[in-house]
Design a binder for these strands. Structure first.
Lengths: 352, 352
DNA sequence: TTTTGATGATGAAACGCTTTATCATGATTT
DNA sequence: AAATCATGATAAAGCGTTTCATCATCAAAA
């Protein structure tokens, strides 16, 4: 059925060896092919529409040129965060550049990590873990099977290769900005406790205000819109004089929820309440007002992770196996200079 | 290095054939293995931590159990639409259920379709195309190489296997609802012209009003938030008495832009202006007011496409190779009963 | 007793490539 | 003239599976 290397060899009047050496390009071993034969081979291959079987190649060389991409559970958190597609985009670029391929796995649909591990090995040279759950089953499998892996946006185990962004620094950036804008009574809505990025962001924020001798209120919130809504209602459930003037939300989605409740209540943003988000997702620019938020180089993180992994697979030395990429602050209009809210402008919270 | 089938056979005191037959399970050919031998094989395999080489398997059987997933260019349209991840989620479920694997490709990063095709073949048994560009290069490659493919959310060529949703029907649903709510002066913001779903949605909408003998204004818009903003401003640029009372936006994102401008202008939604979106993306429920919109069974479309493709690969007859899945209307609060706007409540358009 | 059949097991030939080892040949050096 | 070298080429041995063809047994049927 399919045209093989032997067919090409026959048509070109030469041996499979010559064809292999010619078409696989590069300077492999000691096989030499003369100019004329080479041309005949090219011609024959073109004429037959030959394309070598990657499978056979893999079996012969022991290298598959495939790396596994393990995506997190496809739940609401994932769906509503453009992380995954952005990370994937960065990964794709690098993987294509370096001539590798990507095989997709998810930890979804009742698939045990055991099964995943089974599928992964022998087909995949290394694995990229995007936000792997902290229970760690996955990276353990990798370690047991001695299959190289890089974990993105999460920190599964000491010594593991990871790519993260500077969560602490992001918290610092947000706090500095808020402080500069004059906010002295502020609160942090901390992200879910089981996510390893929540704490350092919070701590970074706190560190700035602590240095200024100012106490910061920490509210346990979460990464969803609902979490923002709930937490904000909770905050509004106190005397007006005790409202914070600045809020550091767990992420953009949460900030969105916060702003919705605040606006329904009659608070003007940023004049009555300033909000800073995290992630700089696409909708941050579209919100009302446009959201000031901490930007992570997400797609670059994907690229970096892929690059590290492939380096390792190819024996290139990797200087920093656990880089922490810098974040930046995208200043828009949701965090302004502080001015106390006038109680006359307030309505009651929309109970929806 | 790796433990092979021969190692297992040796340890179990039997032949590779027996091991293969035993561990590959199922009722293949005429190889019979006695109960005792079988147990010894299981034991040996477990002891050695054996897992068969998928590569070797593929080479021997000629089946890779891998299907290619080709994602569209990773541009803003994609990033801001949860389509891709939702479709992927549906695909993944089916693919995992049927014990296949997914290899990822995108049409991104200067990768010519030629290259893609090269990579795809010989490793992949079939291809799933998510919103392939209408220029058609990709599906042509597939056809030339006789590699089965299913196109999702787009209609590349007559006779091609596709999975689409009922765009015309979606337009009808939106129109019927608007009509029932009393709207008689309405407009459609049509999606990008180079996207095959734009036209049928528009036509579906028009058909309902045409039947009622009412003319509908059609504005060429697009699928982005910006498009919604631009089109709405354009509409507001006329005498108040000529404002439509109902608007059918190209999609949710566009609707979001529309509502932003309308609210800035002082129009109350839905009382002054009713809006219906399309897609029922996650943020539709979070918008202000929550958006009434046409829901597509996106993840189901992915599942269906994968199912069709695998059926075909396995020789199962597929009754309908180009299904059009039904859509539904998710009624929230952005489309209400018609009431003329009071001109006193209007402000000027925010020029941002 | 000879056939037929079922059961259990295996050797060896693919699958399509890479790669090692080997071999000619003619040119250059000793 | 013999030895060495560079060049061009190939046969054959893997790579780790599956599967076809074959072969012993032993039980049941003829």
């Amino acid at each position: 059925m399919a045209v093989t290397i032997r067919d090409v060899a026959k048509l070109a009047g030469t041996s499979p060896t010559a064809v292999s050496a010619t078409l696989s390009g590069s300077s492999n071993s000691s096989i030499r092919v003369g100019k004329e034969t080479r041309e005949r081979i090219y011609a024959a291959a073109a004429q037959l529409g030959y394309s070598p079987s990657e499978i056979a190649k893999s079996l012969a060389t022991g290298k598959t040129k495939v790396i596994g991409l393990v995506l997190p559970y496809a739940d609401a958190f994932v769906d509503q965060n453009p992380f995954v597609s952005e990370v994937m985009s960065g990964i794709m670029h690098e993987v294509v550049d370096r001539q590798y391929n990507l095989m997709l796995f998810t930890a979804t649909a009742g698939m045990s990590y055991n099964q995943i591990a089974m599928l992964i090995d022998s087909r995949v040279e290394g694995v990229l873990l995007v936000m792997p759950p902290d229970d760690g089953a996955i990276h353990l499998k990798c370690e047991r099977r001695k299959i190289p892996y890089v974990s993105i946006l999460r920190h599964p185990a000491p010594g593991a290769w990871t790519v993260n962004s500077d969560d602490f620094g992001g918290g610092v950036l947000a706090a500095q900005h808020m402080y500069q804008m004059g906010h002295r009574r502020v609160a942090v809505l901390r992200g879910n406790q089981d996510v390893s990025t929540s704490e350092p962001r919070c701590q970074g924020f706190l560190s700035v205000y602590r240095e200024a001798g100012i106490e910061v209120e920490v509210v346990q919130s979460g990464f969803s819109w609902r979490d923002g809504v709930t937490s904000m209602k909770q905050i509004l459930d106190r005397p007006v004089s005790e409202f914070p003037t600045g809020l550091f939300a767990a992420n953009d989605l949460c900030a969105e929820g916060v702003m919705r409740v605040a606006k329904d209540y009659g608070l003007a943003i940023p004049s009555d309440l300033s909000v800073v988000g995290y992630d700089d997702t696409w909708f941050a620019a579209m919100s009302q007002p446009p959201l000031t938020t901490v930007n992570m180089p997400i797609s670059e993180m994907g690229k970096r992770a892929a690059s590290m992994l492939i380096d390792r697979l190819e024996g290139v030395e990797v200087v920093d196996p656990s880089p922490i990429l810098p974040v930046s602050l995208t200043i828009r209009h949701s965090c302004g200079a502080h001015a106390a809210p006038t109680s006359s402008s307030l309505k009651t919270v929309n109970p929806r």
